[in-house]
Design a protein around this nucleic acid. Structure first.
Length: 424
RNA sequence: GGAGACGUGGCUGAGUGGUUGAAGGCACCGGUUUCGAAAACCGGCAUUGGGGAAACCUAAUCGUGAGUUCAAAUCUCACCGUCUCCGCCA
């Protein structure tokens, strides 16, 4: 959600921003609605003022006859007020409907483009490994080494269901622990957060109302979140934070649920695209400064790049084009790991910042140096998404004999083991 | 699932129909005092919208939303949440 004042004062910027995001919205119409809203609001407030004044007179007056006369007068005025209040309510509803559709303005550095095809590579790291054999895809690897079970996964959980087992399961645990250790050492607060969340949290983070079809919903009207960001961002909703406590940095772990509606044909095998996975997510709440947000954005991206380098996984960073940005995002980088079997990079991390788009909806504020209440800025980036990251590791670390070399930094989390082999 | 209690400002806590945006306390800010500090004393101190250059004026806000009334923190209803007890489960 943007500030209506900001929208009014920067009409063209907001309209251009929406266009860049390929979102169809009429800002002029919104402003006309806002004019209407303010006009009716003024009328309603004037009448309320009169009612307040006269009511106070009635309370103080001892003259019974006059009292009765004033009460009668007010009764008539109230009739008029009722009609106007009804009009105001409708005007606000229509206004709000449009307000929540107004996207945040993308940063000037965001390239123009329709979808992820037009995302631009910013940099890449690592040599794509040259295999002297035909590398297997991660599906074949996990099946050959008995690291996952998709057949029984589907039997038990349905389409895209999976079990991780043996060293496949241990690899997940190793990655979580490795990433967690790193972020805790960086001063991040470790959190285990709920996946089962209330509707308001998804509105606040901008996943609703637009993303309804991608979310699982319970019979009680709650939802299963697709990321720990949802619960973590809502953690401080409605609160006023101490400026000295900012930036707050969290490394939050949770199961993640995604319906993947509309992508039925994509990645139908394996653990690249699943309905349920686990993720460590970086979430930051910071003071309201664009420079600060932009700096932190680079920082949360750099953390992941550092870890990818430690894992020796070739990757590239792309800056997402306007059309590939979410409603609230100002700018987003995707970090994509090299997948040898597909001969292309695949997204493993998504790093974005929002300014106060989320916190305005969630009502998270702090008091600045002048004592003024301001909405904090929010940012988030994937830290470690299992399953995608282990899939990349398995493919990049496979050997001719079918075994997997365990990345050096993960060995201590896997009992010192160097290779993943088939257990007989 | 059943029964009950409760939800007031940054915190605490009064307030059951009429200048109550809300007493008192804590915290915070300014001042007096002091060599300096503490203590004490004096003063200030909610948010949001609208108008205004400003002083200031005005409307709304006591969990949320409806309702009763000339007038609601206060009465009614629904919802959300918290707590206590019982039941169920671990």
């Amino acid at each position: 959600m943007l500030d209506i004042k900001f929208i009014r004062e920067n009409k063209d910027i907001v309209q251009e921003g929406a266009k860049k995001k390929r979102i169809d919205i009429d800002i002029d119409k919104l402003i006309t609605l806002d004019d209407e809203r303010l006009k009716i609001l003024k009328e309603v407030e004037d009448i309320r003022g009169e009612v307040n004044r006269v009511s106070n007179d009635i309370g103080r007056n001892q003259d019974q006859a006059l009292k009765i006369q004033l009460i009668e007068e007010m009764r008539v005025v109230k009739e008029d007020l009722k009609g106007k209040e009804e009009k105001l309510k409708l005007a606000i509803e229509e206004w709000q409907k449009l307000m929540i559709q107004v996207p945040n303005v993308p940063d000037i550095s965001v390239p123009d483009g329709v979808d992820d095809e037009q995302n631009q590579e910013v940099r890449n790291w690592g040599d794509k490994k040259v295999f002297d054999f035909t590398p297997k895809d991660h599906v074949a690897i996990v099946e050959d080494l008995d690291l996952a079970d998709f057949g029984r996964g589907a039997k038990v959980s349905g389409f895209r269901g999976y079990f991780m087992k043996n060293d496949g399961a241990l690899l997940f645990f190793a990655l979580w622990q490795y990433f967690l250790d790193y972020f805790v050492a960086q001063g991040y607060t470790p959190m285990l957060v709920p996946s089962l969340v209330r509707k308001e949290t998804l509105f606040g983070t901008g996943y609703l109302p637009q993303g309804e079809e991608d979310l699982y919903k319970t019979q009680d009207g709650d939802y299963l979140a697709g990321t720990a960001e949802v619960a973590m961002m809502s953690y401080y909703s409605g609160e006023i934070l101490e400026k000295e406590s900012l930036p707050k940095k969290f490394i939050a772990f949770s199961p993640c649920f995604r319906r993947e509606a509309g992508s039925h044909g994509k990645d139908v095998k394996g653990i690249i695209r699943v309905h349920e996975f686990f993720k460590l997510e970086q979430i930051i709440l910071a003071e309201a400064s664009h420079e600060n947000s932009a700096r932190l954005h680079e920082e949360i991206t750099a953390h992941v790049e550092h870890l990818m380098q430690e894992l020796i996984l070739p990757y590239r960073v792309v800056v997402n084009c306007g059309g590939d940005l979410g409603l609230g995002q100002v700018k987003k980088y995707d970090i994509e790991a090299w997948m040898p079997s597909q001969n292309k990079y695949r997204e493993t991390h998504s790093s974005s910042y929002f300014h106060d788009f989320q916190t305005r909806r969630l009502n998270i504020k702090y008091r600045d140096d002048e004592g003024k209440l301001r909405y904090v800025h929010s940012l988030n980036n994937t830290a470690c998404a299992t399953s995608r990251l282990p899939a990349a590791i398995l493919e990049n670390y496979q050997r001719a004999d079918g075994t997997i070399e365990i990345p050096l930094v993960l060995r201590k989390y896997m009992g010192g083991k160097e290779f993943i082999k088939k257990i007989n």
